[in-house]
Design a protein around this nucleic acid. Structure first.
Lengths: 165, 165
DNA sequence: GTCATATTGTTCATTGACGTAACAATCCGG
DNA sequence: CCGGATTGTTACGTCAATGAACAATATGAC
């Protein structure tokens, strides 16, 4: 007898739990991410941003002149999806659709000066909220988690793509 | 010079990226979890399960006799949501709504023998897929990631709850 | 040059997974 | 016994994202 719990949980469990799910890394990712997602949405709302528009803004800030198709690839959504995001950001005066010299079909997305300021505000805001959320973890643990998540994402992406190939 | 990229990304970026987002732990969680989610859905589909029903099945297996309200609390969804899940599982002969002796309103959820077998199959299947997904990480790293995610989820849950309180 | 084919952005309908609000049946405490 | 809570249920709304079409434009073969 290693663990001295009740030997036979035949009928009603005193404490229902998701113990069987917690063995999986994916489930723990979900649990953690759901918290981050909810907090992030609440953080961005006062800035007039949703998670989708916030992500799009970040990519355009970091990659000025990007096209909507490229943006859809980076965000891993369909082209029809970015239209909504860019419409919203453009309507807020945060982003603009500039014409591409060589191609009259595509747009060159750029942030306005107001957009740049909004991003800096959002970036600081999100960073602060994330720090507060994970305040129970030591800085070294956070760094480690960040690195492991990035590697896990790469590993999963690679192996999933190989399946399809 | 470590990386020899162009020093001034004024106009069109050669390689658009989500670099500005990857600084955040939450974004890396999302990237990793999305991969897991897609793979999980594909893994469960042949078994006739969706992520929602799979999660519900796991909880009922681990907590026999649980009520739908309790299940909604563990899964962190509304009671109206579990009705759909339990309906589906019951329709597949995986689960049954047994009457609760003392309370004629509630149901005592239990897995059938077929349900128990289905869960064992799903559990093994998911474990194998997860191992393949994260094959690039050393076992020790995986263990570490599992632990850090669990702690991060707890930390976030605690701090978010304190805000509301 | 011309024409088939691909690409870009867009619109619209649909889907899926939730939440909200109401409701009947049932339980509980005074 | 009765007002108020709890359980499961139903109908409806919401929100983000997809899929399928489409017009405008670009590209490449000939």
């Amino acid at each position: 007898m290693t663990t001295a719990t009740s030997p036979e949980p035949k009928k009603a469990p005193a404490e229902p739990s998701d113990a069987l799910l917690r063995q999986f890394i994916g489930y723990n990712m979900k649990r953690a991410y759901m918290q981050v997602q909810d907090d992030l949405a609440a953080t961005l709302a006062p800035l007039g941003l949703r998670i989708g528009t916030y992500s799009a803004l970040a990519v355009v800030v970091g990659s000025p002149g990007i096209s909507q198709t490229q943006l859809s690839q980076v965000l891993d959504i369909k082209r029809s999806g970015v239209v909504v995001l860019v419409d919203e950001l453009e309507g807020a005066g945060v982003l603009e659709r500039a014409p591409v010299p060589g191609d009259r079909r595509a747009y060159s997305l750029r942030v306005t000066s107001a957009g740049k300021r909004l991003w800096q505000k959002a970036e600081a805001e999100v960073r602060a909220h994330e720090a507060a959320l994970f305040a129970d973890l030591a800085p070294e643990d956070l760094r480690q988690l960040h690195d492991l998540l990035a590697r896990a994402a790469r590993s999963a992406a690679r192996h999933r793509q190989e399946e399809t190939t």
